[in-house]
């Protein structure tokens, strides 16, 4: 017992203060929200689009646009661009409410707005999620799991991952939705009592990610269920996922933490 107490003292208090205090430090080389300065693009240059592993970059009228739903936040486009027209910032806020919002062409990313008043009154202070991995590589799963550790302590926001769909208010889906998981995902969705929500975490769950053109998968969660929150990344940083969840629950807005009602 005494050894346990000593270990407890030595390990210290580890739960972060964010969002009431500073956000945990992100690595210097962390790649968050990309920016595009189309004015720098040389005539007819497609270097970024040519190297993108998921064909996330498209051109219209000579200007590049990035589909953040497909983007793996890998360093390839930034490295290939001869004019530094594309670069990754360290902005971790990436979650949106609609798939179309993820098409980034220079305008600001419309970050997720809160659920409507009725759903907020139901889920705002207590949200139970059932997690379904449907072809996920275990990186998104790991960084969702991390939110349950003492550092992040997801429970302090009333959010909890539960062991049965019948105890859940919604699903948190990772993976491109393999054909072999389609039925299991549908059945899990059907078992969640309405009203219910869906959160798609990671490039795979939004668009199929690196597997976007494979016939063995369906191209993300929205192919099977309606999605309420899209969290881009490969995988998204835990901070990105939590930021999205808190925005969805109306606990966080651009101005900062929303005081509890």
């Amino acid at each position: 017992m005494i050894r346990t107490l000593l270990a407890r003292i030595s390990q210290g208090h580890r739960t972060m203060l964010w969002p009431d205090g500073p956000a945990p430090a992100l690595a210097e080389r962390y790649r968050g929200l990309p920016t595009i300065d189309a004015g720098r693009c040389p005539e007819a240059c497609r270097a970024c689009a040519d190297v993108c592993p998921t064909e996330a970059i498209s051109f219209s009228a000579g200007k590049p646009a990035i589909d953040l739903g497909r983007c793996l936040f890998c360093p390839e486009c930034e490295a290939a661009c001869p004019e530094k027209a594309i670069s990754f910032t360290r902005d971790y806020r990436l979650a949106v409410r609609s798939r179309d919002d993820l098409r980034l062409d220079g305008a600001a990313l419309p970050l997720a707005k809160a659920l409507d008043a009725k759903l907020l009154s139901l889920f705002g202070r207590s949200l139970k999620l059932r997690q379904v991995s449907a072809g996920g590589c275990n990186a998104c799963e790991a960084d969702v799991n991390v939110l349950g550790t003492i550092g992040w302590d997801l429970g302090r926001f009333g959010i909890q991952v539960v062991a049965s769909p019948r105890h859940a208010d919604g699903l948190l889906i990772t993976g491109p939705v393999t054909k072999n998981m389609e039925l299991a995902l549908k059945k899990t969705w059907d078992a969640v009592p309405p009203p219910k929500i869906v959160i798609a975490v990671g490039a795979c769950a939004i668009s199929g990610g690196p597997y976007y053109d494979r016939p063995e998968q369906l191209g993300g969660a929205a192919s099977v269920v309606p999605v309420d929150l899209f969290v881009p990344g490969c995988p998204p940083h835990p901070l990105t996922i939590l930021d999205g969840l808190l925005r969805l629950l109306g606990k966080l807005e651009d101005e900062g933490r929303v005081a509890p009602r």
Partner: peptide, 16 residues
């Protein structure tokens, strides 16, 4: 292919 490296890195995400 252009997708190959990304697929290798996500074969098993915890073993990237």
């Amino acid at each position: 292919h252009r997708q190959t490296t990304a697929r290798i890195e996500t074969l098993a995400g915890d073993t990237t």
